[in-house]
Design a protein around this nucleic acid. Structure first.
Length: 427
RNA sequence: GGAGAAAUGGCCGAGCGGCUGAAGGCGCUCCCCUGCUAAGGGAGUAUGGGCUUUAACUCCCAUCGAGGGUUCGAAUCCCUCUUUCUCCGCCA
């Protein structure tokens, strides 16, 4: 959510900023509501004031034993007026917050203009794209040959966009997750967390998935309303909802492995082959809660932490700064890390690292006590995949394949595979 | 799942329908005092909004788990919900 103060005082500026996202803010409607709100709030509070002071007089008169009836007659009628005013006020406020909750974050000034992924800005590439003296297979063919990835079983047990992993490949995914967790714990100083995989509406509202993107979620229960988490960002960031964090405790650095569930409602026909786009996938998520002045720097560091995993696995990737049109609703600035997939001959997203600044914090009422002002102030929140485990598995398979269709185990993963160096096809 | 009890500031804890945004204690901050320490004395110590076309102060409004209701007036009375605790049952 944006600062209501900003919406009040610099509405035109906000509108102009949001144009970069192709988001059209109905400023006139909002401004009209704001004018109404102000007027109604003033009358409401004036009425409340009259009632309060009148009631106080009655109390005092009663204590003295005076006749109270005339006073009571005087303020009795206020009740109805107040009720009307209060209802009207609540109504206007509800309308305003409905609009406000649907407004995306203002982009950082460093975010380039652009409409779609094509306008994203490549920052740099890392690693050498492997040269094969044979035609590299994609992970679907490799997985079939290695008898470790089975999409038919996913369909049988659940539906399309689910998968069953077995044997060494299932273990390889777990090894990848272990490597990531250990790296973030030991090298990057994160704290491991274990969280609910179902989240309530309030939590999802806090991180920005609700109310606007309910269609992307799986709802698991109606009362209470619970949703399968689309990312660990939701439960982990909500750790600080409605809290005032001690300044000395910042930054909070959490790492969390979790499954993620996405309905992929808008993705019919996209990435139907393979496990690029699944309803359920594993991810290791990094979340940081920081002082506002630190978030810019933290964003760079957090992205670096995700990159370090790719480097440990020696997977070629590129770092991309998302353009205005491709940056997510809650984010002010996002770097994507895209890993090279030989099977597709393309770079594909494997991590997304975002600085939300105070956008989520305001929805979450996540604050810290600034020692300089002594006042509670909003924190900044950031997160990034470090990394998506399913896609990492794919990337390892495709980049480490040989002509026989076997997959070498990257050195960094061998300790987690009981020393196994090569995954070979089996009968 | 059944029965009962409870929910008040950073924490503990009081609170008869009116003078209670809230006693008292602890903690914390500042000041005073005493070589140091300990002890002692004094003052202060919730959040959000009205609120910006200077800001601060004063002022006004809201908030005692949440939401409704009764009333001129609710922390206090009534209803619903949530959560926590105790006992029973069930369970990895």
């Amino acid at each position: 959510m944006l600062d209501p103060h900003l919406l009040r005082t610099e509405l035109d500026h906000v509108k102009k900023e949001l144009m970069r996202r192709n988001f059209v803010l109905d400023a006139d409607t909002y401004a009209a509501l704001e004018t109404q709100r102000k007027a109604i709030q003033i009358t409401t509070q004036e009425l409340q004031n009259q009632r309060n002071s009148g009631s106080k007089l009655i109390g005092q008169a009663k204590a003295k034993g005076d006749d109270v009836q005339p006073l009571m007659d005087e303020i009795q009628h206020l009740g109805d007026l107040l009720k009307t005013a209060e209802t009207e006020l609540a109504d206007v406020q509800a309308k305003m917050s409905e609009i406000a909750e649907g407004i995306p974050n203002i982009l950082d000034s460093s975010v380039p203009n652009g409409k779609s992924e094509e306008d994203n800005q490549e920052i740099y590439r890392w690693g050498d794209v492997p040269a094969f003296n044979f035609t590299p297979k994609d992970h679907v063919d490799l997985g079939e040959k290695l008898k470790g990835i089975n999409f038919e079983l996913g369909v049988k047990i659940a539906s399309a966009r689910f998968v069953v992993l077995t044997g060494a490949l299932a273990r390889l995914q777990r090894a990848i997750i272990q490597l990531m967790l250990d790296t973030h714990l030991n090298d990057h100083g994160y704290e491991e967390t274990y969280v609910p995989f179902l989240a309530n509406a309030e939590s999802l509202r806090g991180t920005g998935q609700l109310p606007k993107f309910e269609a992307d979620l799986f709802k698991a229960s109606d009362s209470p309303a619970l949703y399968l988490i689309p990312t660990a960002e939701v439960p982990v960031t909500n750790i600080v909802r409605d809290t005032i964090v001690d300044a000395k405790a910042l930054p909070l650095k959490y790492v969390c492995h979790s499954p993620c569930f996405r309905s992929e409602a808008g993705a019919y026909g996209r990435d139907v082959r393979g496990m690029i786009r699944q309803h359920q996938f594993e991810k290791v998520e990094l979340v940081q809660i920081v002082r506002p002045e630190d978030s810019q720097q933290t964003h760079e560091e957090l992205t670096q932490h995700a990159e370090n995993i790719l480097k440990k696995l020696k997977l070629p990737y590129r770092k991309v700064l998302l353009c205005a049109g491709d940056t997510g609703f809650s984010s002010s600035k996002t770097y994507d890390l895209e890993v090279w997939l030989p099977g597709q001959g393309a770079y594909r997203e494997i991590s997304s690292c975002s600085n939300f600044k105070d956008f989520q914090a305001r929805r979450l009422q996540a604050r810290w006590r600034n020692p300089e002002t002594g006042k509670p102030e909003l924190v900044h929140t950031l997160n990034g995949s470090g990394l998506a485990a399913g896609r990492t598995l794919i990337a390892v398979m495709e980049n480490y394949q040989d002509a026989q269709g076997s997959v070498r185990v990257p050195e960094a993963l061998q300790p987690y595979m009981g020393g196994l160096k090569v995954i070979e096809g089996r009968v």
